[in-house]
Nucleic acid binder design. Structure first.
Lengths: 236, 236
DNA sequence: AGCACTGTGTTAGCTACATTACAGAAGAAG
DNA sequence: CTTCTTCTGTAATGTAGCTAACACAGTGCT
């Protein structure tokens, strides 16, 4: 039963490698707020989302939190396992529900611990892009004002979902951006006034993607360029 | 000529692996502000510092910058190369001068592209710890006040240098922490008043390391724990 | 219809830090 | 010793975002 892969990492694999993996790949539904990686607990599953968005957040002891990474169809959940670590202090969960492929950790490790595996090289390049996203986010969180960060973040989500409408509440955006909900309210409202987005009661609609890109800080372009580079040599 | 390795990654290698690598390892002096990885340029060299501190910073187009990672004797410079990427957008340079071992990129790749290499597994675990540091920094930059971040940062440097006195200017700390120099001045002065540090004209002295640890946010402990875990199974 | 609940808008006072500017102090160079 | 340069302290003013509180509007339930 050959299911069309839409996760970009899986899609980039040579046919033979895809066939080798396919017995271990299962399609699963990812529900909103489902936890994929629990802090400090063994990572048992790897996910290759393709129309869902997942987030890695760091939670502080006082309850505040910030997103430090965001994964969609361009990546996979469980990079820590690829890095020979069975646990990690951050939480990864589903931010926008959707479909994903799933693999058991043990199967993943067995296939990827082969230096010549095409999957191994793709994972390496993805982890690099992910590291760049995370570190750029670290800088962005310190240096850029909320309105620019909000534009950047919405465009990152939009690019990964590849549709203009998706569920998204202000409360959630506040958690991701590490600010208070009322602060998101004013910032999001300005974007709405400017005609870039429209939203109501947990439904977000992107009206002007180009406008979001322009309103975003330079971090957006830098981050997306890294993810494009993963696949450069495969489509060159 | 068997030189005593002090970089922890090299020191953790089995004797046979050390001997295999030693023809390619050269001791070098790292000078203050020497650039080890230039943004968007090919990484030609790998460094294993042991009494120097190196920093990875992200620089924005308006000239502002923030440190997103800090490497000393517990790690190595050039993780991007291990991740199959020849360039990266961030800059890595020497923050506190000192000694390091050095390896040409090509030699490093040849040795590390072997799944069973002990060096390969150590690199993997180090990259995980480095990723945790970077993402925790992203969260910390957003959520924690400067005085706590300054304590955390000074202790990270102190832990890596393993000495109480080292050259450090306010201008530099401001760059690392992503704040203005006068802001560092007031924060550092408070630490000095409290008897935790003493400094003058570019010389920093740690007077009360335990006090710094207490004044730091929770991020310090979380980060250091990750680096300890790299070596757990080697000294268990 | 009435009610409760959830998501959103908005306000006012507050804090952390930015910005700019300048003054002093310690070395370095003459 | 004098002068210059570098590093540090400080002060005035501005602003982004926090905090807490509340109003209101859709949505679902009874």
């Amino acid at each position: 039963m050959q299911v069309r892969e839409e996760n970009m990492l899986l899609a980039a694999l040579p046919e033979t490698e895809r066939e080798r993996l396919s017995p271990y790949l299962k399609k699963v539904r990812l529900d909103f707020q489902q936890v994929l990686v629990e802090p400090h607990q063994e990572i048992a599953d790897i996910y290759f989302p393709y129309n869902a968005i997942t987030s890695t957040v760091h939670e502080m002891s006082d309850g505040t939190s910030v997103e430090t990474g965001l994964m969609g169809l361009e990546g996979f959940v469980g990079v820590q396992l690829w890095l020979h670590s069975r646990t990690t202090p951050s939480r990864t969960f589903v931010q926008v529900a959707g479909e994903s492929h799933h693999m058991r950790a043990s199967d993943f490790i067995r296939h990827v611990r082969d230096t010549d595996s095409p999957l191994n090289e793709l994972c390496a390049k993805y982890v690099h892009a992910f590291l760049v996203m995370t570190s750029q986010t670290a800088a962005c969180n310190r240096l850029h004002p909320l309105n620019e960060r909000l534009c950047r973040w919405l465009k990152l989500v939009h690019n990964r979902l590849r549709r203009d409408e998706f569920p998204m509440r202000q409360e959630f955006m506040a958690m991701m951006l590490g600010v208070q909900r009322p602060t998101v309210s004013t910032a999001a409202n300005m974007l709405q006034q400017a005609g870039l987005i429209r939203y109501s009661r947990g439904q977000m609609r992107i009206l002007n993607a180009e406008g979001l890109r322009n309103g975003s800080c330079e971090c957006l372009e830098l981050i997306e360029k890294q993810f494009e580079q993963i696949f450069d040599r495969y489509h060159g």
